[in-house]
Amino acid sequence: MHYISKLTYYLVIILIILSINFFLPRAMPGDPLAYVLGENPDMPTRMTEEEREMRLAEYGLDKPLLEQYLNYMVGLSRGDLGCSIYYNTPVMDEILVRLKWTLLLTGTSTVIYMLLGIFLGAESAWARGKKKDTGSLITILTVSSFPTFFLGTLLAIFFAANLDLFPLGGARIIGASYANPFEKALDILHHLVLPAATLIIAHIGGTYLLMRNSMLSVLGADYILSARAKGLSERYIMNRHAIKNALLPVVTMAALTVQFMIIGTIFVEKVFAYPGVGNLLYDSVLRRDYPLLQGIFLFIAISVVIANFIADMTYLWLDPRVRDE
């Protein structure tokens, strides 16, 4: 029951986002045409009255607002996000060809940095005060305090330019023909290592630290004493009693920090010339490709909602108390 009401809640949120995406540009001051045409406000395009009307009709901007809205929604349901000014191709197509790379990059990085952060945080708490704990605490906090852009550049210079262990950029060798799927996967992985490592290192600190502290406070809880009183081993108590409780704040934080992951992805894709949506966003800002930008923002907003949905579901799954509220 809880899951269904959550799902409804998130569907409503997505609907609201889609509507904002429609109304916001129309509510902005200035000529809507300038917006869809990606004009530089300092050098407005000269147009006759006729040309203007033709253009407005072309974009459906002459119709009543409600009709425009309905058209927009119908268009969305067919995957129509308008046309890119720069590429002169459907926005949806431009995003979709890049989306798989971004999903691969952020997906892998998120899974790894979360799991690794949780694992190292738990291990650190377990060895509280010992060398292993202090060592990982200092190392992780130091490396993850570098800004993403700087860290990415550093890794690129060192591991790609100097040591030549990994490619400098891209997602695969362009125009390569592979003998088998395995070779292709290997090439993709080879290209993925540095950008993913950058994202992982840049984000692991928060998860690690939160997990460590959360674990430390859980280890002092009465129910842990209870578990010890049963004669259970410390390892068992850690795995079966402590971790699940300690994860709760980590899951909450993961949901609250998706936006940092998205920003990080933009920088990393830029540094490593990774052909993803982040890179496209960066370029589109410079090119004033508003329709494309709007489409990307829509995808970002939806992915934030989906990430929150996943976090919520995980929380529900972990904590029976919330389930029954």
């Binding site: 129910y223 004669g231 259970l232 079966r240 409780n245």
Partner: peptide, 29 residues
């Protein structure tokens, strides 16, 4: 602990693990 000498801790509310089924908390011992 638990087999020869058992302690029933004070404060049942905080002494039971909130995210583990009650049966399991008995069964594990």
């Amino acid at each position: 602990r638990g087999r020869e000498i058992a302690i029933i801790l004070q404060n049942p509310t905080t002494s039971l693990n909130p995210v583990m089924k009650v049966g399991e908390q008995i069964a594990e011992a």
